[in-house]
């Protein structure tokens, strides 16, 4: 996990995003235990309550579950849920912005499609 504390994002949100990323990439596998709030707060010297807040966000979104006496685990199907959610946001975060920016540059729809094709051919 990496934190950028210069970022304007609230810390608890950074915590939940970082854990979500780890679920997304498979670094935290489904069914396995993630580090405790105490461990995370000790490593990065963040207030435990903040870490807990971040984790609870993910618990509410059904990506993590707390097992009494055992710790916090990644729920089954969490990775797919993250992928689905990110696909939803992909349209909003990337596509709409792309179209907006392209309008400023006076690029037409066909110009965009050309550029996308170029991108795929090269990479």
């Amino acid at each position: 996990m990496q934190f950028d504390f210069q970022s304007p994002e609230p810390i608890f949100l950074q915590v939940s995003n970082q854990i979500e990323d780890a679920i997304f990439t498979g670094a935290f596998k489904e069914g396995t235990q993630i580090p405790s709030t105490t461990e995370i707060s000790k490593t990065f010297q963040i207030n435990p309550a903040t870490v807990l807040k971040g984790m609870n966000l993910l618990v509410n979104n059904n990506l993590l579950e707390k097992q009494r006496g055992r710790g916090t685990f990644v729920t089954y199907g969490a990775q797919q849920r993250v992928i689905n959610e990110r696909r939803e946001h992909f349209y909003h975060d990337y596509i709409l912005n792309l179209i907006n920016e392209s309008k400023k540059l006076h690029l037409s729809k066909d110009d965009i499609l050309e550029l996308i094709k170029r991108g795929y051919d090269n990479g």
Partner: peptide
């Protein structure tokens, strides 16, 4: 680290006065 550990295991109030703000600016609530 020990402060956080102790605070987690045994919650209580800490009032920390320091000049080195950057060390505790993520730690304080």
């Amino acid at each position: 680290r020990e402060l956080i550990e102790s605070y987690s295991a045994n919650p209580r109030t800490f009032i920390i006065s320091t000049h080195i703000i950057e060390e505790i600016d993520k730690l304080v609530s």
